[in-house]
């Protein structure tokens, strides 16, 4: 609490003059940067389109309602595909992420010099790149279809699951591990008796949480050709069939709400 002596006696201020100056400079820099970014970003914006947006929105809205309920029949199969992409992709991702997490955790890594940085890079690379981009790439490599979607979901899940899991491994109680080691257990036994019981709740919680996120993501992977509901969405958008688009969005929304409910229930049961 800086108190400065002045001619009129001591004056109390919240911050020192220096700290205040720095704070104002900081805020000023943020504002200036934002304004500058805004100008650069909107350099090529055609404001006539922006001004026209409300009438466009009204137009789309008018066409999108009511949704075409009969279209729902054609959505069951894509919905099944979407759920499969999410589930199989999550399983594949978790299967790869688990060894990566053990390589990345300080207390279980086989080598802090090589394996750990490599595992950490895999985790960062996977986390930085959205599943849609992975899908874009995989569709280009493997051709369109569910397989590209499953692998895209798996690749994105590795980073998420790997990061949370390796943090859980680093938080395990070292004395429990030591006790198992002292019985003469082998490395594999140490994993199953020492580490696994301690990380199991985190493992299941993380997996289900990621599955929930993956349901959302797999619903739109079809936009780039990786199968599921998104494929239908893309087709409807291409022909500007807005009532079908609305119907698809309703199905996606329903699925997301359902998967969130399932994941909350399962996580509740584990913890």
């Amino acid at each position: 609490m800086p108190v400065t002596e002045t001619a009129r006696g001591p004056v109390w201020q919240l911050r020192t003059p220096r700290a205040r100056l720095l704070m104002w400079l900081g805020w000023f820099a943020v504002v200036a940067l934002t304004v500058w970014c805004w100008q650069v970003m909107t350099k090529d914006t055609i404001w006539a389109f922006v001004a026209d947006a409300p009438s466009q929105a009204a137009d789309i809205g008018a066409r999108a309602f009511p949704p075409r309920w009969s279209y729902a029949e054609k959505l069951w199969l894509p919905l099944w595909d979407t759920i499969n992409i999410a589930t199989l992709g999550t399983m594949l991702g978790v299967a790869i992420a688990t060894p990566v997490a053990f390589m990345a955790a300080r207390n279980t890594t086989p080598s802090a010099m090589f394996a750990r940085p490599a595992a950490l890079f895999i985790i960062v690379a996977s986390r930085s790149i959205n599943s849609l981009i992975w899908a874009l790439l995989l569709v280009s490599i493997l051709g369109p279809g569910l397989l590209a979607g499953i692998i895209a979901i798996a690749l994105r899940s590795i980073g998420f699951v790997g990061k949370l899991l390796y943090e859980a491994i680093e938080e395990t109680d070292a004395t429990q591990i030591e006790a198992i080691e002292a019985t003469g257990a082998s490395g594999a036994q140490l994993l199953t008796y020492g580490y696994w019981p301690q990380i199991a709740p985190a493992f299941w919680g993380i997996s289900v949480f990621r599955w929930d996120i993956n349901i959302r993501e797999s619903a739109v992977l079809g936009l780039v050709g990786a199968g599921g509901l998104g494929l239908q969405l893309q087709a409807s958008l291409n022909v500007l069939a807005w009532p079908q688009v609305t119907m698809i969005l309703i199905v996606i929304l329903g699925t997301v709400v359902f998967s969130e409910w399932v994941s909350a229930r399962v996580r509740h049961a584990i913890i």
Partner: peptide
């Protein structure tokens, strides 16, 4: 929170035209 970014982007591009805006 209910809709993915990409779907919102599709709708907004339809309304506001292509580009960073």
């Amino acid at each position: 929170r209910s809709l993915q970014e990409i779907i919102i982007a599709i709708l907004l591009v339809a309304m506001f035209g292509f580009g960073p805006f």
